[in-house]
């Protein structure tokens, strides 16, 4: 009986259904806790690019950071919360359907009368999504700091993008050339990247991840520039 085909199929089916039920149950119950962690991580990332890393800073997130949502024309979008935007998902939709309208969250930090723009970045590495936050000075040109993270890049290679060694290179890089047009910050294997304000050293053995980060920077920073330039003129 134990080896009849009917029994084997029946048993396999029952096990699958039970396992699936338990997993979906657990996922539903634990989701609120996990989302809280994701939100906290996001807020901590945003604060970290403007140098607020103490645990008590995180509690004052709303005091430090003002968030706006901007559209492709560089206008503020009303009634949409910055944290509700899933940038990676929107960009994926856009790649399938070019008429899809992208909206970007922008976080603004103000201290001592000086603004810092915190740009959200989303791209793809070798194995999955990569993302990051980039703090841009009020002049709309100088990078103050950048942080990156990834879902599953290779440890020791592509995964190095979230180390200080890589992120630290971004401080004081410029995204505009001398004539004021956008050139982004390129992640490149060229030697002497240190002397060029538009280049940082790529990661050895992490070429595809590095290229992904480079593309992400170019695409996403450009989107914000319309808005930042507009608010500069006002």
């Amino acid at each position: 009986m134990l080896n009849s085909n009917t029994y084997v199929f029946g048993f396999a089916f029952a096990v699958t259904v039970l396992v699936a039920l338990m997993l979906s149950g657990a996922a539903t119950v634990l989701k609120p806790f996990q989302e809280q962690n994701f939100l906290k991580e996001k807020q901590e990332n945003i604060l970290s690019v403007v140098g607020k890393v103490a645990p008590e800073d995180y509690k004052k997130f709303d005091q430090y950071i003002k968030s706006v949502v901007i559209d492709e024309q560089g206008n503020e979008v009303e009634n949409v919360k910055a944290f509700d935007i899933n940038l990676a998902y929107d960009k994926k939709l856009k790649s399938k359907n070019p008429s899809h309208k992208l909206r970007y969250p922008l976080y603004i930090f103000e201290e001592g009368g000086k603004k810092t723009y915190i740009l959200q970045l989303a791209g793809v590495g070798l194995w999955g999504p990569v993302w990051g936050y980039l703090a841009l000075d009020e002049d709309g040109n100088t990078v103050k700091k950048a942080v990156f993270d990834h879902k599953g890049e290779t440890p020791g290679l592509g995964a190095e993008i979230n180390t200080d060694g890589f992120e630290g290179q971004f401080a004081n890089r410029k995204i505009l050339d001398e004539s004021g047009s956008f050139v982004s910050v390129q992640v490149t294997k060229e030697a002497k990247a240190d002397d060029d304000p538009h280049k940082v050293d790529a990661i050895s053995g992490g070429t595809i991840t590095s290229t992904g980060v480079s593309n992400m920077l170019r695409e996403d920073i450009q989107f914000y520039l319309t808005y930042i330039n507009k608010s500069k003129k006002v």
Binding site: N3, F11, V15, A27, Q34
Partner: peptide
Amino acid sequence: IPSRIRIIVQLAIVSLLVILVDEILKA
């Protein structure tokens, strides 16, 4: 457990527990 599919049944149970542990850690 039918002996012909015992390995895959074991795997299903192990995967269930591992994913549960992973989800709990994430939470």
